[in-house]
Design a binder for these strands. Structure first.
Length: 436
DNA sequence: TCTGGGGTCCTAGGACCC
DNA sequence: TCTGGGGTCCTAGGACCC
């Protein structure tokens, strides 16, 4: 648990507005004319909405097919997701924000927290406005900024800035009176850390707003919401419990999973998919210089159809490794244990866990790493080439070699579906924006 | 017909030990 | 007849986030 110490500094949260939709609009301003939504991996559901799409009442996570008809009629614009573009735009936004303060925590692809010196509300406001202006000017992305004594309150301030349509995208929430006024208008599910389940639990106890929650008894809250829930309440009262985390830190688990565009029954296709997931996860593992001693494989039918079946297996790896061929072999072995013929699978994935540092593993006599220098060198070369050229340049044969659009490979159906994707404007020379 | 993907932390309960 | 209790570790699942 992070220590609770008096912290006179203030927290600011910068959050990009409608981030994925905004990224698309930077390179294609015409998209602003009609509601725009960005779709998930298989164009399955809606994961981002422009302001106009939000006004139409389109919800986050809704299945895309509900809106296909209206898209055909031209009322709504639908784009496949382009994560290469979003990740690059994110980096540019974060770089711009970092130029204002060294005390910055990159919280998610579109959000960053800052530590600010205490100052008058006017000064805080003008600083935030200046940040906002510069990010817009340098990247084209609109951001909202909320400033408050704790992270949880900064979240609420940010939300306030976003919701105020006549506002300037900035909200400073520092004095106790305006904080308590704001909490009266804040619904439980709009509190950072209080989700649908905990909201329900609280409502059953006749608590409906953030203001009512902060008035509740400590012991009672602790019992009902657990430690993190209690910390959230302290934060709402103005006591910082969640500190700024500047170092991102290594991941404790790495998952690579996909829903398939079509149902898959064939074991060999599943094997290819699982191999590709293992290879992908292994690459991320090497990127953070870790080796894994735990691997899990899972396959699942569609959760929207009876009978739902989901199976997984867990494998302890005696000699921790990040060597792709070994991890592929283990994953395939795991798959063979859980696969049942006659079942049609809609989703599969590989999870790696129980990490240790790849260099430290060598000196550990009890669990020696199986990554010899030769293997390490081979992986290094592959990673280097794949990082330099458009992916996938080098792959393992187990991942499947037939990538032709008419083939039966697990990926081709996906490629056919994800047709409406924007170019990699900022990361591929071929896709540079053309001004005509 | 069509419903994402990738994370973190906490907790309750079981197994086991003394 | 009387049949403990506390500590630790592990794991599955729940809850949250974007």
């Amino acid at each position: 648990m992070s220590s609770i110490r008096p912290n006179k500094n203030l927290f600011a949260l910068a959050d990009c507005n409608n981030f994925f939709a905004s990224c698309e609009m930077v390179f294609n301003p015409g998209l602003d004319k009609k509601p725009l939504v960005v779709l998930s991996n298989n164009d399955g559901c809606i994961i981002a909405r422009s302001q106009k799409a939000k006004q139409l009442g389109i919800k986050m996570g809704e299945p895309a097919y509900l809106y296909r008809e209206r898209a055909k009629k031209g009322e709504i614009q639908m784009l496949s997701s382009n994560f290469t573009l979003y990740a690059d735009m994110s980096q540019r936004v974060m770089q711009t924000l970092s130029s204002f303060s060294p005390d910055i925590e990159l919280y998610s692809i579109d959000e960053a927290f800052f530590l600010l010196e205490p100052s008058s509300d006017e000064v805080l406001r003008s600083r935030a406005l200046e940040m906002r202006r510069k990010v817009k000017q340098w990247t084209g992305i609109p951001v909202s900024i909320g400033t408050a004594p704790t992270k949880t309150l900064a979240k609420i301030a940010n939300e306030t800035a976003k919701k105020d349509k006549n506002g300037d995208g900035v909200c400073v929430l520092t004095d106790p009176v305006s904080i308590s006024e704001r909490l009266k208008k804040t619904a439980l599910e709009d509190i950072w850390g209080i989700g649908a389940r905990l909201s329900e639990r609280l409502k059953r106890k006749r608590i409906y707003t953030a203001a009512q929650l902060v008035e509740a008894d400590d012991v009672w809250i602790r019992k009902l919401l657990g430690v993190t829930g209690f910390q959230t309440v302290l934060e709402l009262r103005g006591t910082p419990c969640f500190q700024l985390c500047e170092e991102p830190g290594k991941k404790k688990s790495i998952v690579c999973s996909r829903s398939f565009a079509t149902r898959i029954e064939d074991l060999s296709l599943l094997q290819e998919a699982i191999a590709a997931f293992a290879a992908n996860a292994a690459e991320k593992l090497r990127e953070q210089e870790s080796v894994a001693s735990f691997l899990s494989v899972f396959i699942a039918a569609s959760p929207f159809q009876e009978p739902y079946e989901s199976r997984s297996c867990h494998i302890q790896i005696p000699n921790p490794t990040s060597y792709t061929p070994e991890l592929i072999a283990l994953a395939k072995e795991g798959l063979s244990q859980i696969y049942r013929s006659g079942c049609s699978y809609k989703k599969a994935g590989v999870l790696l866990g129980d990490f240790s540092d790849s260099d430290a593993a060598q000196t550990d006599l009890i669990t020696p790493s199986s990554d010899t220098d030769k293997k390490k060198e081979a992986m290094k070369v592959i990673d280097k080439i794949n990082a330099r050229y458009d992916k996938p340049s080098l792959r393992f044969a187990a991942e499947g070699v037939d990538q032709h659009p008419t083939s039966r490979s697990w990926k081709s159906a996906e490629a056919n579906i994800r047709a409406n994707v924007s170019p990699k404007f900022t990361t591929s020379w071929h896709d540079l924006l053309k001004i005509t």
